[in-house]
Design a protein around this nucleic acid. Structure first.
Lengths: 131, 131
DNA sequence: CTAATAGTTGAACAATCGTTCAACTATTCA
DNA sequence: TGAATAGTTGAACGATTGTTCAACTATTAG
């Protein structure tokens, strides 16, 4: 048993007996790989900070430089630059240089799609409160 | 000016002059409310941890009790219970009691939709690497 | 060349977050 | 009633994360 799948944990960290072994076994087979789930978590993590969301929503509307974004959000250039680096590394935004100024924009339409879907969920939650 | 909108920041935290005032003004009008963006960030945050994703993917396949999930993931009941509490409070999962055993399941199909969409993004990123 | 400014970078800091541990509640069963 | 066990809870811990600060690079303009 040297070729363990990820979910076959050797070391037993649980403090209980298995109640429904057949359910556990069946679910285990359908679970995505550990690495895939880590990537998925990292992807969602990009959208889990309001500063990054603000930057992304701003760039949906217009190409902007760091100073513009700083003024828009009332934050330092440094803070904005740090977040833009994260977004750049994850291929959510791209940029072009024009002299001293660097213009950032959305890399593609993924961001729009993902934000819209998340937003739909959030707004629907509100409706539940109203009713 | 006591009735300030959120993005009209009184205190100037920026260390630069505005370069494209008209862009900043236009974008400012289209930005969602601060509160909405905070809610949106919180919503994405729920999916940004791999343990929570594992639990959600497991529950997509079957209703499960805490022990089952613990064994499946190789984690303590306590850890699983803490995460289930978060998911419960956010209305992503629901539960039913049967004696000593508590069965958890997905609250609705939102989770499936959101995970699928995130997964599509992650898998597409992989394709870009291949080409 | 020199001053000014857009943007980046890394260290430091506080805040947040996930896991663990130990103690606890609640339900079953003998 | 009392032992066993499913599950919860809160405090403590370490790890991660977002912002700030100060120093830095790079480009423009005088």
């Amino acid at each position: 048993m040297s070729d363990l799948k990820f979910y076959d944990v050797e070391l037993d960290r649980t403090d209980c007996t298995v109640i429904h072994q057949e359910v556990v076994d069946r679910v285990k087979e359908t679970m995505p790989d550990e690495d895939t789930l880590l990537d998925l978590a990292d992807a969602f993590k990009l959208f889990s900070d309001s500063t990054r969301l603000k930057i992304l929503y701003a760039l949906m509307e217009a190409e902007m430089c760091v100073c513009d974004i700083s003024v828009l959000l009332g934050m330092t250039k440094s803070s904005v630059s740090h977040q833009l680096r994260v977004l750049k590394q994850s291929n959510l935004v791209k940029y072009r240089k024009a002299g001293r100024v660097i213009y950032y924009s959305l890399a593609d339409d993924h961001v729009r799609t993902i934000c819209q879907m998340g937003m739909a969920h959030v707004l629907e939650e509100d409706e539940e409160f109203d009713s």
